[in-house]
Design a binder for these strands. Sequence first.
DNA 1: CAGTTCGTTCAGTATTGACTGAACTATCGG
DNA 2: CCGATAGTTCAGTCAATACTGAACGAACTG
Lengths: 169, 169
Amino acid sequence: MPHSLSAAENFIEQMGLITQDDGGPRIAGRIMGLLIVEGQPFSLAEMAERLKISKASASTNARLLANAGMIRQTGRAGDRQDYYELGEDPYQRMMETVSARLRKVADLVFEAETRFADDDGGARSRVHQLAEFYAQSADFLADWSKQSVSKGDASRNAAPPSTGDRDDN
Amino acid sequence: MPHSLSAAENFIEQMGLITQDDGGPRIAGRIMGLLIVEGQPFSLAEMAERLKISKASASTNARLLANAGMIRQTGRAGDRQDYYELGEDPYQRMMETVSARLRKVADLVFEAETRFADDDGGARSRVHQLAEFYAQSADFLADWSKQSVSKGDASRNAAPPSTGDRDDN
DNA sequence: CAGTTCGTTCAGTATTGACTGAACTATCGG
DNA sequence: CCGATAGTTCAGTCAATACTGAACGAACTG
């Protein structure tokens, strides 16, 4: 009975692998999977026990996810442990995090662009195009995440943001 | 004069760091940066020389980028070296690659979902929600990448895809 | 004001994977 | 054919970082 993972274990492990492939810590993905599958708050000690990981990892990665807005800290009456559960709109928040990352990258590229001379064989304008791309992507995802998506009601026909050129360099 | 990077060097290095933060190989980002900044084909030997990297790395990472559709292989008359240059719509292709990745993840989660019993305290439906989220995101990016974005003409008011529920599990 | 029970932090370990140098294969030019 | 020139592959090295165990600090409990 130890072999052939249960549906829950399998899902949790997949989440770990997916997260790892995306360049994140595997344990963060596993915690995310655990909270999704169980649908209720877990204490750090419970996570550590269930996922066979150290307290330290549970603490660090839970905080990481909380900072990314994907899970949220809770408490229980008469219990001084920290509990964590899925946040309000976890996937929406995930989008917002990605958007924020893109915006940061856009700013980096805009900054790099300023160091070019105005004519550089078109180099500057190509760099500018890249920065614009990142900025537009960030805006686009941010707007999309404002719509209620992937929730129970799943609104259809989300309106698109207008993707005109920006002027903030 | 060796200190204080030129605009080009700085940009190339930033691209490397950005790529690294995104979980990719730093050199791939640097090559991307080089091709953007120079706007003309480079041979593997030229890349290796300019970026101070090994032939092996140039070869491997150029192929990686080409497989992702972000750059494209070219040739020159009377020259048997492999040249690489920016592809048709590099950023569009970048989006398509991200979309493909999301679709792959969605499929993994759909697959994991099937292993759950129909009633599992809502576990199955929560997993399904996650799969839907990934699938919708993939569709959304794919649709968006079909619009001409971040090109010279920069079309405004891109129409949004309708994000209704899917039924392909 | 002890004694517990938490969570966090930090030094050390281990693992992953990027990168390189060198060997190998293939193709072109003479 | 033979030498040279390319690109790829692969074993080995190195660096980054995920993860752990243990020490620490803070906050509740009695």
